[in-house]
Simulated scan of single mutants.
Amino acid sequence: MDALNADIAMLARRRERDRKGFLHTIELKNLAIRQLEEQSNSGSTGSLTKADLQVMSDTAITLGLAHKTWVHIKGTEPWRTRAATQLEQLNSIVLRILGEIRISSRSAENHTDAEEAA
């Protein structure tokens, strides 16, 4: 009987330790979700704001128009090359940022789905 009581006490301590670990894990998960929601609601991607993204988009349009305009003007080859290179670099940056936004959004959705399932 003493051995059974000792086993029960040991299992109760183990269960309590596991429960505290589980609650700590949930607390960390909820903190991460809140941070992602705040980031998402603020409309920022890291240190970039919506206005920054709009400037990047407008710049890409301007560079594209400059390149198309200079194609028909002799002697503008260096400027066309520069505009094309900068446009390509800017598009690369924008695609990387959009990829990070999508990953953050998917991560937040997965956390929300998991929380709803639990």
Rank of each mutant, 00 (worst) to 15 (best):
88 E>S: 15
27 E>R: 13
63 L>A: 00
80 R>T: 15
8 I>N: 07
109 E>A: 10
9 A>N: 13
97 I>A: 03
74 K>G: 15
22 F>G: 01
98 L>D: 05
50 K>S: 15
1 M>I: 03
10 M>Q: 13
44 S>Y: 06
45 T>C: 07
21 G>L: 02
44 S>N: 05
47 S>C: 04
7 D>C: 05
57 S>V: 04
24 H>D: 12
46 G>C: 03
5 N>A: 11
63 L>W: 01
84 A>E: 14
103 I>K: 13
60 A>I: 08
59 T>E: 10
34 R>T: 07
114 A>S: 09
44 S>E: 14
109 E>Y: 10
70 W>S: 13
71 V>L: 10
43 G>W: 03
115 E>Q: 06
105 S>M: 10
89 Q>Y: 10
92 S>N: 11
19 R>K: 10
18 D>T: 02
92 S>T: 09
91 N>H: 07
83 A>N: 09
70 W>C: 10
85 T>Q: 03
50 K>H: 05
98 L>Y: 02
6 A>H: 03
85 T>S: 11
75 G>M: 05
14 R>V: 01
15 R>E: 15
90 L>N: 08
1 M>A: 14
94 V>R: 13
91 N>E: 13
70 W>E: 08
55 V>E: 09
35 Q>T: 05
113 D>L: 05
115 E>V: 07
21 G>S: 03
72 H>F: 06
107 S>V: 11
71 V>R: 10
39 Q>A: 14
48 L>W: 02
89 Q>I: 04
77 E>V: 06
16 E>A: 12
118 A>D: 12
41 N>D: 09
81 T>N: 01
30 N>L: 00
74 K>I: 03
116 E>G: 02
77 E>L: 10
118 A>G: 11
68 K>R: 14
12 A>N: 04
84 A>K: 12
28 L>A: 15
76 T>Q: 14
62 T>P: 04
42 S>M: 02
105 S>V: 09
117 A>K: 14
81 T>S: 12
44 S>T: 03
81 T>C: 06
51 A>F: 09
